[in-house]
């Protein structure tokens, strides 16, 4: 074999090897891409399935609840004031301190219908104890005993800080006792979490209605926001209510 022929054979081999390598890369790219698309599709499917399963829980709606089962009403005034709040939310605590009493007074004087919607959007801030959901559930149980406002107020007076464990069920029951709520039905409902799925349901409806933050306050169906996206002050709230009352 001459030297020139050997060189050509080697060159030909190199070309073939190169083509084979390219073919291999093409195949690998094709099949890995197919694999990746399938993995991503499956991952999405898992998410969808998990979500659908979560929706299946049976909801026990408290009989006292109004407005599509999302709220408890105080008073029968013509102006309707809706308040969506989370029992752990600091801004709600401030709002309750500033305006809670005057709203409740107006409701009791039947100047307004006060509808309080307990929602649970801050479960992630109670170290896994889901205080927001438990508290909202307890409020529903209290409503069934006609003591919603009593429990609502004592829970806000003892509002736990975010990123704490929240109040334990025992503590909630103890606080309830201090405001005259002692029934066994209530204690069982708190311990068994009877209304927890209801709290989740209310939170869903809250989102569905397009609200994102707590407290969300509505006067006669119109969202009331203070200047620069702040929670409305007590003055602004009273003015708006008086205007609505005409």
């Amino acid at each position: 074999m001459s030297k020139g022929k050997r060189d050509r054979t080697a060159q030909a081999r190199a070309v073939v090897a190169k083509q084979q390598a390219a073919e291999r890369r093409r195949k690998v790219t094709l099949w890995t891409s197919v694999g990746v698309v399938m993995v991503l599709f499956l991952a999405g499917l898992v998410g969808y399935t998990v979500m659908s399963r979560q929706d299946d829980g049976k909801v026990t709606t408290p009989t006292a609840a109004v407005d599509d089962g999302t709220a408890f009403a105080i008073g029968t005034g013509s102006v309707v004031v809706d308040v969506y709040e989370d029992f752990m939310c600091p801004a709600c605590g401030n709002f309750e301190q500033a305006s809670g009493e005057s709203l409740q007074n107006m409701a009791e004087a039947n100047k307004i219908t006060l509808r309080i919607h307990p929602v649970a959007i801050l479960d992630k801030y109670s170290n896994g104890t889901e205080y927001s959901t438990r508290a909202a559930g307890a409020a529903a149980a209290a409503a069934e005993e006609d003591k919603f406002l009593e429990l609502h107020n004592v829970l806000y007076d003892n509002r736990p800080e975010e990123n704490s464990d929240g109040l334990s069920n025992e503590k909630i029951i103890e606080l309830a006792k201090s405001v005259g709520l002692t029934s066994e039905t209530f204690v069982n409902a708190v311990n068994e979490g009877t209304y927890k799925t209801w709290a989740t349901d209310v939170t869903e409806k809250f989102s569905d209605r397009g609200y994102n933050s707590t407290p969300t306050i509505l006067v006669d169906g119109t969202k009331l926001i203070g200047p620069n996206d702040t929670v409305p002050t007590s003055e602004l709230l009273t003015q708006t209510i008086e205007k609505a009352a005409g």
Binding site: G44, G47, V50, E204, D208
Partner: peptide
């Protein structure tokens, strides 16, 4: 919100 629910559930897994 119904669409947001699906997106919100699928997204983290993706």
């Amino acid at each position: 919100y119904d669409t947001a629910k699906v997106v919100g559930a699928v997204q983290p897994f993706l």
